[in-house]
Design a protein around this nucleic acid. Structure first.
Lengths: 541, 541
DNA sequence: ACAATTCCCACCTATGTGGTAATG
DNA sequence: CCCATTACCACATAGGTGGGAATT
């Protein structure tokens, strides 16, 4: 069952935080299986499909169905604002075309993902998450000092949501310090159990346990039984990715799946995964800014000059020789083969070096995009009165969306090691980064009934329970209708059409946002499990 | 108001986990102030006072008053067993007279405090804690290769309870790995804010916040805003201390104060705090076993011999020369001036190198002591049927007690930086290590009413709500009626009178265990606050 | 041959050790 | 003078860097 408007991706617009659909996915199948709440969602899906080229209405969850928010969600007053920490540095990288090294054992991101959060309800509890989703449908190659499209994207491994170790914590706690996701590691090792490991931070345990009940026996644990374990995300080398920050108000992790998600996307954190740096400028920028790479520094900072190894000098020389063409020649996205038309909606972020136009996502009218907040900070509150509407801001705010709670019977965002999802999803699903999907096992827990019973009245998709002031960027996902084109990172004069519309918003019948995929057939899981296990034997480190 | 049997300490037996009393403490005052639930507790206190020389009945909390245990305590089946990890190593140190270095910035303990826990209810949540309390009333000096009493103890700084970062976690989670408290640091820096800092582990935050609501602004935080911060405990150099492990079943940290505490004391973890090692044997033992001191190793293990620095060789030589008198000459405790009579009750642990007889605690008949568990493992459950009664075990189990929940209006176990408790408590109160006492501010929270209403009928102290199979050791606290004398660490043939008695236990009307001290007068706090702040200005690092 | 990947390395940060010498 | 304390040091662990050569 497909819908018009769907081009190279499935038509049904899943909530960005939902799981990828198995390869045999189809709306009818899901409906038949009871996985999808029939009536209400079907229209939504249709609308979404039809609105692929529309703004990001699908990011505004229908109020009624998702209404059953957690208790702490009632009456709680918050108007979250999120700013990207180290935005300037991120922008420097972004201008050159950020590259992130992925290794078999997992590599941290260098400009680290850190955020400042404000406007939360001090007493309410929140769960903060981060995931990294495919930015588009392509595979890239670095040729002639430029990144070029080199074909269609390879199949993505299921993306796992990284839950901040401190989750859940009160708004007060989150706001009093910078929230860092630096422990998340990027890897290309699909057989790496680490990535599926429980995160041993106390606060994450229960949730992890619920979502990924079968951690690998070889799980890495802090030798001192502490909470230092990290989580890895599996990426494809030479592919473009977009990290996403999620803010969820939920005082009980069990309610997370049914809670409202506020998603913040900072375009400047977009990057291409590599196994070895391609652009020497990027390399040098990393060396110059990452304390751990100080050994490779040439300039002042480091206390080099004493015993530089040969390769080190070499690297420096090489890098420098290339740095000449400072600003006149910067890597730019190549309108490769299937490169989609550069969309310009939500205008999320400042400088964009990729015209990461979504593959099939049409460009939506900017009128739908709502932008606010200053310097990569954004207010994702539901109140229209709250968002500060400062006229001119140097850089646009991140893309934000409010995700609806997901349905219980979901395709796990990430499967436990023993239950791997189909290795090949439709390359670059609507939402490559699915939130975390309730593992079937989670159902054993006494969870509240699905927010949207199959018999629920169709929610009018035109009214978001909580308004999403920002549309999501074109990520080659459900969000993908945006392709910002800001070029100078700190010059965007004013943000446009602030949240005013948020309050009185009467979103077009477009955004269905979230719905729920079904869990893959057991048989599939089985075979996959075997496959994965086989891989493990071979490459397990 | 004092009671018979009280010698150099206040007569009222506070629950070991309670706060120290202000210097002007008195039962009557407390009662007047309404801090102490009058009727029920008074008898208990009297009984406890009278039973200072008795076993450890006071460790068995009266059922009714403490009955209102947290919900999760009802119907939950558990029979905790705790074993000290690395017991052998601990014993080696204990035989020589363990020394722990304390520094201004805080030093970790070397044999680390690690425990294996079993017998918990897999689904119930537990909070694990560790504190270090004065072992006796003395100050020591190392003279002629021996530790000797060198006078009366200096005033103790309030001891802070170290909450395991993973708390609260389910029994299942605690049991699946070794629980380590290695991050706790020992310091002698009373103006060090660190020790009063929030522990940033997510799981500890809320509780920390409640208990110590006013963290120092200069609080050390993980640069990455993570949960790596440690907590420090302030100790007096040349004084003897005893770490204590506490197991509390509570699924809500707010209920912790009212929950039942199971306290485990492993005598072999007793130590003397020093700023520099005194006994070269200890030094060498540390060097030989601590990976971080590998650089000082002489023997095989280390890859030394390449560029040993002078002092290093020197140290080695010195150490070796002294190591000759292997077993014939071992440091022993000196029955110094006020050294109390060596008690022999609870017979907590194997080898004891200190005859740390409690100052005023009388020695109780060993008949009161209950011992079980193998190898420093002990079952602190309430059931008599569970504790394994293996006939002969190499080493006795640790001392265990079940603490009753504490009263809300408590003297803070540790005051927030801005609210320092009186600097000088009666040196070595009944319970030098007070649990964590509810900070007055905590009262603002909607806490359940005090477990023991003032009008509650006096609980018969002869029946413990949950039986404490082990009496607590002589710690210069309420527990102080024991002074084990075991000498060979692994030779104690069989543990005696196992938990059999636990089940049918009919503890003598002795142990009142816990009750609640009142918060110190505001005026005192104020002046203290000033004093401390003054110190801060001077020595703040 | 080419490109991507992997392995190993020196070099960093950060932090836990005890020794030594200076300090009080 | 003695002794406890402190600052600083070399040396350890643990882990994050990119380079370069080897591998795929």
């Amino acid at each position: 069952m497909r819908f018009e408007g769907a081009e190279r991706r499935d038509a049904v617009a899943f909530h960005p935080l939902l799981a990828p659909r198995p390869s045999d996915f189809s709306v009818s199948a899901l409906l038949t299986a009871g996985a999808l709440p029939p009536p209400p969602y079907l229209p939504a899906a249709l609308a979404a499909a039809a609105a692929l080229s529309a703004p990001c209405p699908l990011l505004k969850p229908p109020p009624p169905p998702y209404a059953p928010l957690p208790p702490d969600d009632d009456g709680v007053v918050d108007d979250p604002k999120v700013t990207l920490e180290g935005k300037d540095l991120w922008e420097k990288f972004h201008k050159l075309g950020t590259e992130m090294v992925i290794t078999k054992s997992g590599r941290q991101m260098f400009p680290q993902m850190k955020f400042r959060v404000s406007g939360l309800d001090a007493k309410a509890k929140y769960i903060l998450l981060l995931d990294i989703v495919a930015a588009d449908d392509y595979r890239y190659k670095f040729h002639n000092s430029r990144w070029m499209v080199a074909g269609k994207a390879d199949p993505e491994m299921p993306k796992r949501m990284y839950i901040h170790p401190d989750s859940p914590s009160t708004g007060e706690q989150w706001m009093q310090k910078v929230v860092s996701f630096h422990k998340l590691k990027l890897t290309n090792n699909i057989s790496d159990k680490h990535g599926f490991e429980l995160i041993y931070s106390q606060s994450q345990r229960m949730l992890s346990k619920l979502l990924w009940p079968n951690p690998a026996p070889s799980a890495p644990r802090d030798p001192h039984s502490d909470h230092l374990c990290v989580t890895q995300t599996i990426l494809n080398s030479m592919h473009k990715y977009q990290p996403r920050f999620h803010l969820v108000r939920a005082n009980d992790i069990l309610k997370l799946p049914y809670s409202t998600f506020r998603t913040y996307v900072f375009k400047e954190t977009e990057f291409i995964a590599v196994t070895a740096y391609q652009n020497e400028k990027i390399t040098q920028l990393k060396i110059d800014n990452n304390p751990f790479a100080k050994g490779f520094r040439d300039t002042g900072a480091g206390k080099r000059e004493k015993n530089l190894s040969v390769y080190r000098r070499q690297a420096l020389l090489t890098a420098r020789s290339d740095t000449r063409d400072e600003d006149d020649e910067r890597p730019l996205d190549v309108g490769g083969p299937a490169s989609p038309p550069p969309t310009s909606s939500t205008q999320h972020n400042t400088s964009s070096w990729f015209s990461s136009s979504g593959g099939g996502g049409g460009d939506s009218g900017p009128e739908e995009a709502i932008e606010a907040g200053s310097d990569s900070s954004c207010s994702g509150g539901a109140r229209a009165s709250s968002p500060p509407a400062g006229p001119s801001r140097p850089s646009p705010a991140p893309d934000v969306s409010l995700g609806p709670p997901v349905q219980p019977p979901l395709l796990p965002y990430l499967y436990p090691p023993s239950l791997y999802p189909p290795p090949f999803f439709p390359p670059h699903q609507m939402t490559p980064g699915l939130l975390f999907n309730l593992h079937p096992l989670l159902q054993q827990y006494s969870l509240p009934p699905p927010p949207v019973p199959p018999t629920a009245t169709a929610p009018s998709l035109t009214k978001a329970h909580r308004f999403a002031p920002y549309a999501l960027p074109g990520l080659g996902s459900a969000f993908e209708q945006v392709a910002p084109r800001a070029r100078s990172l700190s010059s965007s004069p004013a943000r446009r059409s602030p949240p005013a519309r948020a309050a009185s918003a009467d979103p077009p019948p477009d955004a269905p946002t979230s719905t729920t995929p079904a869990t893959p057939p057991a048989s599939d899981l089985k075979s996959i499990e075997r496959m994965v296990n086989g891989l493990d034997v071979e490459t397990q480190d």
